[in-house]
């Protein structure tokens, strides 16, 4: 195991997240079974009091997940210097079989926790706490995710062996590498560029409609679910080439490095924020009760959906603008005389 400061911090954050959600599980289950705001019973009063603690504690634990994801990627990138053959985060993540699963689980935990935080914010703003059951249901669903994230991080960090010869990003996207990575890298640029910009522009249009109407979060969520993998595929297939100005360098991690001005964090940051807003809007639309909704909820849900739509719109438009600028400003020309 590599005894690194980031590793200690990450294990602390994910360990606390897993322990916290697990500790909140009995309360979450009790809320799902017995929550009844109209009741004045002692057990309901206890649930309400505990709910305040659990909501605040979870908000704190889950708020940490976003910077933890950033730190995880930065740590993997920084650790590349320890391994023979590694040039960036890809080499470090491939040192053992737990690297990429740990990253993917952490990304899933990031989206899951943001959905919970949005539900919690809307619920806290209503006097009748109409989303308490729903957010505790999401909390129960987050337990295995947080536990898996912690377990995979432990397995990954404890299995880091400096004597392992790993491979760099160049080999991952070469013709004899894994199918998915190679397929993404070998997508024709003439096809990948229009698909990327059309899908992201469509997502931006759906976000604009959602922001304008204050409803339709589910459609925005669907657009977000499609735009996210297309955005990632676009980074691998053509955007990376323009960033590195090298027609063979497809790495989605190298542009997180200082020599590329940390541009990767901007690309991923806006795409992740837009996607998180989109899926949160969908979750809000799906989990908000439609019948017998209180006046508070009738006011809060459209307002929150509008805000999420605006965030998603800003995110998708920025992604389109930044990517377009990158393609136009790059010294590499892949589209004829363009």
């Amino acid at each position: 195991m590599i005894l690194d400061k980031s590793v200690l911090a990450l294990l602390l954050a994910s360990g606390a997240g897993a322990a916290g959600t697990l500790a909140a599980a009995p309360h979450a289950l009790a809320v799902l079974r017995r929550w009844d705001l109209s009741s004045g019973s002692a057990s309901q009063l206890r649930l309400e009091r505990m709910s305040t603690l659990v909501s605040t504690g979870m908000a704190l634990l889950l708020l940490v997940q976003a910077p933890a994801l950033l730190l995880f990627v930065a740590a993997a990138d920084g650790m590349a210097s320890h391994f023979v053959g590694a040039m960036c985060a890809i080499g470090s993540l491939k040192v053992n079989p737990f690297g990429f699963p740990a990253l993917i689980t952490q990304i899933a935990a990031f989206f899951g926790t943001l959905i919970w935080l949005v539900l919690n914010a809307v619920d806290g703003g209503c006097r009748d706490y109409p989303l308490t059951r729903a957010k505790h249901g999401v909390l129960v669903a987050l337990i295995p995710l947080m536990a898996a994230s912690f377990g995979l991080e432990i397995a990954y960090f404890s299995g880091l062996d400096a004597s392992v010869i790993t491979s760099c990003c160049g080999s991952l996207f070469s013709s004899d590498s894994s199918k998915v990575a190679n397929d993404l890298a070998s997508l024709p640029v003439r096809m990948a560029i229009p698909i990327y910009f059309v899908v992201l522009a469509t997502a931006a249009a759906v976000a604009a409609v959602t922001a304008w109407r204050g409803r339709g979060g589910i459609w925005l969520g669907l657009a977000g679910v499609v735009a996210f993998p297309v955005g990632l595929a676009g980074i691998v297939s053509f955007l990376s080439l323009y960033v590195y100005e090298d027609p063979l360098h497809h790495c989605p991690f190298c542009f997180l490095k200082p020599e590329y001005g940390y541009r990767g964090y901007a690309f991923y940051g806006i795409l992740f924020v837009a996607t998180a807003a989109a899926v949160s809007a969908a979750a809000l639309g799906l989990l908000s009760p439609r019948e017998n909704a209180s006046r508070d909820l009738q006011e809060r849900v459209p307002r929150a959906t509008r805000t999420l739509g605006l965030v998603a719109l800003a995110g998708y438009l920025s992604t389109v603008a930044v990517s377009g600028w990158q393609v136009l400003a790059s010294g590499l020309k892949l589209l004829g005389d363009a």
Partner: peptide, 28 residues
Amino acid sequence: PWMLLTLSFLTIFPYTLATLVPAWKAAI
């Protein structure tokens, strides 16, 4: 900046967690 983030994880985060339950007890 990563050092600052790590440092805050190792100091502010545990302190805030440690004071949460007593704060809640005081609040109820």
